[in-house]
Amino acid sequence: MNFSIVADKPLEKYKKCDVSLILLSVLLWGIGMFTLYVCSGNYGERAFNDSLYFVKRQMISSCLGFMLFIVFMTLKIEVIKKFLPLMVAVGLILSLMTFLPGIGLERNGARRWIKLGFMTFQPSEMIKFVVVLYLANYFEKQDKITDAIDKTVFPAVLLTFLMILTIAVQRDMSTSLFVAGLAILLFIASGAKIFWLVPVLSIVIPLSALFIFLEPYRLNRIIGFLDQDSYLQTLNYQTYAARRAISDGGFWGQGLGAGLNRINSIPEIQSDYIFAGWVESMGFCGVLCYFALLALFAWRGLVCALTTKTRFASVAAFGFIVSIVAQSVINIAVVGGVIPTTGIPLPFFSSGGSSILFTLAICGFLVNASRNRIDSYENVDIGEILYE
């Protein structure tokens, strides 16, 4: 019996992954977990008689997330593409399962979750992930078609619209609009003809306005945003409490765990408003550190998108980086009262198993794409990657 521990492939054929992406991903996750620990203890104790309730659930989801991280980091890009039809089908089926009695879970009038034994799952997070991969794969296939007459974006527009619609009917307007904006950006970045954008927007914009005005809570969010000095004990209470916590943070912050009075006054702080807890604890200095880490993460991700060999990996990496950065900016803008409340979570920070699951899967894919970079990228032009 012959055994060999030496790889058959020549050493120069192996590409090193971007270690900084791994370190940044783990660091952002670690800071997010520690912030969740500091901010969620009081609410967990009051609501579930367990100060570590949200931390434990997030840790379980994170373990599964790191498994996905390893899977998407190690699988060959071609293998990921082969599994795409299955991922799209599973995402659509899970989205529709939110309406099945006994499986779908309704909260605050919205059916966005399904029960999976000891945990819940939010299919819209999977759809957000799958849309990017699907469009990246579709654009790569279209790029290989030589006859311009055979090129069309209609199938991609139709299936993307269907996936977004499954989110919208769950009464998750903010996520559906976010995915729609992300998809449009990918169409534009990939050089696809956007003549179809006019009729699509002529349908989407009126429908979006209709959905907003048909739901009283969405209309109340807009009213509260337009008049932020009023309704401080009702519509604007969450934003008002978040602002007080941010103000108390000052430049250096109250210290982790020191300023819990303000943090505890923010409803559902472990979810969409967790950044207010980070700012109160770490102050303006903590805000600068967070944005520095986010900027480094975005930079390394964009370098990965511009230097990876395949069009599929390039477009997908670009879409994923935009997704994480845009979600972060939107969430922080909501906490600061710059835009109306949206329900968009803060990646790596907000409590939510589905969110951390696919955030870590995105990080794994980015690391994978960095392993397939071109040999020299000193003079790489974005046009050569996205439009070629």
Score class of each variant (00 low, 15 high):
W29C: 07
L92C: 06
M59P: 00
S25W: 11
L68Q: 01
R112C: 06
G30W: 06
L24D: 07
S61L: 05
G30H: 04
L64D: 00
I77P: 00
V71H: 01
I80Y: 01
I93M: 05
L92G: 01
K81I: 04
M87V: 08
S51Y: 01
G44D: 12
V71F: 12
R57C: 04
G41Y: 08
L52W: 14
M33L: 14
V71T: 12
L84A: 09
M59V: 10
A110K: 09
I103E: 04
L96N: 03
T74L: 14
I31W: 12
M59Q: 01
K81T: 04
R112I: 06
K81H: 02
Q58P: 02
W113M: 05
G91P: 00
S25G: 12
E45H: 09
L94Q: 04
V55K: 00
K82A: 01
I60K: 04
I77D: 12
V90I: 15
V88F: 05
G32A: 07
T35G: 05
M73S: 11
L86A: 13
L23R: 08
I77V: 14
M97T: 04
N49I: 04
L64T: 01
M97L: 13
K76L: 07
F83W: 12
V88K: 03
V90K: 02
N49A: 09
C39W: 02
I93L: 09
F34V: 15
G104M: 06
L75S: 09
M59F: 06
M59S: 07
L96A: 08
V71A: 11
A47Q: 15
R112F: 05
M73K: 12
M67Q: 01
R57E: 04
T35F: 07
L36G: 08
G30K: 06
K56L: 05
T74V: 13
M73L: 10
G102Y: 10
E106H: 03
G109L: 13
G30L: 10
Y53T: 02
V55A: 05
G109A: 10
I93P: 00
N108C: 08
T98Q: 02
K82F: 07
L36T: 04
W113C: 03
L36Y: 06
R112D: 07
G44A: 13
V38M: 13
A89G: 04
G104E: 07
G30R: 08
S62P: 03
F69I: 09
A89M: 09
K81C: 03
S40F: 06
W29L: 14
I93C: 01
G109E: 13
S61W: 15
